[in-house]
Design a protein around this nucleic acid. Structure first.
Lengths: 193, 193
DNA sequence: AAATCTGGTTGATCTACATCAAGTGTTATT
DNA sequence: AATAACACTTGATGTAGATCAACCAGATTT
């Protein structure tokens, strides 16, 4: 269950067997069926989750009921409902499974405790978050700078796996465009060739 | 020189006097005049900088020569040229001063070393980055979800200092709209009242 | 096997915002 | 004091992409 997890962690920090055992105990394994929500209705707890298997998405729903993709996560990636504890937004925040998935979850209080008990995990997450900031910055610039077609082609170049695995309508939302526009863009691209 | 710096660090972690001394030695103080670049032309070193005084901006320049604001930073904030070491972008990345500024800079190699030597700083940055991710996520959703007017009014509500202190044309770029559009939006808002 | 649902395509129309262009007031520069 | 440079405004026009609507194919449910 923790195979992929430790493979990924060990790429950034080296844990002793004892540390590994400590870390393991903070995580709760969970399986999700396609379309199932990560959180049950009314669940107030915030989680950070590592994806061992499958594919998830996080998204919010605006006041008009439209979904906006925030992130996709598959094997080897983390996903969290971080956004939701920022107040002042009249938006719902959800995580659910696009494909059947297996996760390792940790609550935020346990996360804080673990990073104190195992400083190497503190380091692991500092590095992870640092890289994530860069990725988000890049996406932000892309969103403000490029046309819909440029955004799509850049995504297709940098993250081909994403294009293959994720339904077009969700990719459209991730890029901040409508499914119709994405469909036309794709048609246009194939015509060019 | 380090007053504000340690005030901010101590909000998240408590450093001993010895640790403070250690940390201090990794930082290089620097003063910048309005419009001066943080990096000299050809400077390859990447820095992370804490703003003690003044106001900076980071931005990139696309292939059409247009500037796109990435971040603003004033007293108590950090700014970095993180984006630039991602390859595959035909874009220049700059940091410069909007107002005269005083900084504390650390190179990336020193940063890595410091976090290893002073684990509390590792923790400080993990928390800092975690919060930054949430902020960027929020900005990304805003960018994909809302109209130009909504983006501006939301920014004005959540970051009024930013509106007061930063020239309109830069705010426009930060929101991914043109200065002309922002001008019209502001006119429109005052007319409504 | 029929019916419903889901993801994608295509067309017609509409609109928010960009672009181009000219003009104003204020702050630097010589 | 004259002039240039800069931040902002206002108007006229163009366009990328949204919206609305109908349709289709494959998968899922009954």
């Amino acid at each position: 269950m923790f195979n992929l997890f430790f493979t990924h962690v060990q790429e950034k920090v080296l844990l002793s067997t004892a540390e590994q055992e400590l870390v393991k105990n903070y995580f709760i394994p969970k399986k999700l069926r396609k379309k199932q929500y990560l959180l049950q209705e009314g669940d107030v707890c915030k989680y950070l989750s590592f994806v061992e298997k499958g594919l998830l998405r996080s998204y919010n729903v605006d006041d008009k009921g439209l979904e906006h993709m925030i992130q996709f996560a598959w094997e080897g990636w983390w996903i969290a409902d971080t956004y939701s504890f920022l107040s002042g937004e009249s938006a719902a925040y959800n995580i659910d499974a696009i494909e059947d998935a297996e996760l390792l979850m940790i609550t935020l209080p346990h996360f804080e405790e673990m990073t104190l008990k195992v400083p190497k995990m503190e380091r692991y997450f500092r590095i992870l978050f640092q890289n994530n900031i860069i990725a988000k910055e890049r996406r932000l610039i892309s969103s403000n700078t490029y046309s819909a077609e440029e955004k799509y082609t850049k995504l297709a170049e940098t993250q081909p796996q994403l294009i293959q695995r994720i339904p077009q309508n969700l990719i459209a939302s991730y890029l901040g465009i409508t499914p119709e526009t994405l469909s036309r863009i794709r048609k246009n691209i194939t015509l060019k060739k």
